[in-house]
């Protein structure tokens, strides 16, 4: 299992993370070791076996489509790094 510096940079981009050049080699080494270990799953015979998304099979459970007001807008906004006029504030996008 080989993993390249370019792949690490690509994955970091997908994950919205920045990896400094000085850290890339460490990530390459760690990821290689862990992925080699993870790759052992391919030794298990899974012919004719379906995937399981959950441990306990559950089915769609429907509820009434009713509005429940949370009620405390201020307490939610209080955690925002920046807010204005009761809204989350971000830099100009367009």
């Amino acid at each position: 299992m080989e993993i390249t510096r370019e792949e690490i940079m690509h994955i970091a981009k997908l994950a919205n993370l920045k990896i400094e050049d000085s850290e890339t080699q460490k990530y390459v080494n760690n990821m290689k070791e862990i992925l080699n270990f993870a790759n052992t799953v391919n030794e298990v015979d899974t012919d004719n076996i379906d995937t399981s998304i959950h441990a306990v099979e559950t089915f769609n459970r429907f509820r009434k489509d009713e509005i429940h007001e949370f009620g405390d807008r201020d307490i939610l906004l209080a955690n925002a790094p920046e807010q204005e006029n009761g809204m989350f504030k971000i830099p100009k996008v367009i």
């Binding site: 990821m31 992925l35 998304i53």
Partner: peptide, 28 residues
């Protein structure tokens, strides 16, 4: 590191070999 690993196993080209395979092993 775990976000990177998770992103890798879900990314195009590796999804079947890791994530889908692991979901099958989960059934086993």
């Amino acid at each position: 590191r775990r976000i990177m690993l998770g992103t890798y196993v879900l990314s195009s080209g590796y999804y079947d070999a890791y994530y889908k395979k692991a979901q099958k092993v989960r059934s086993v």
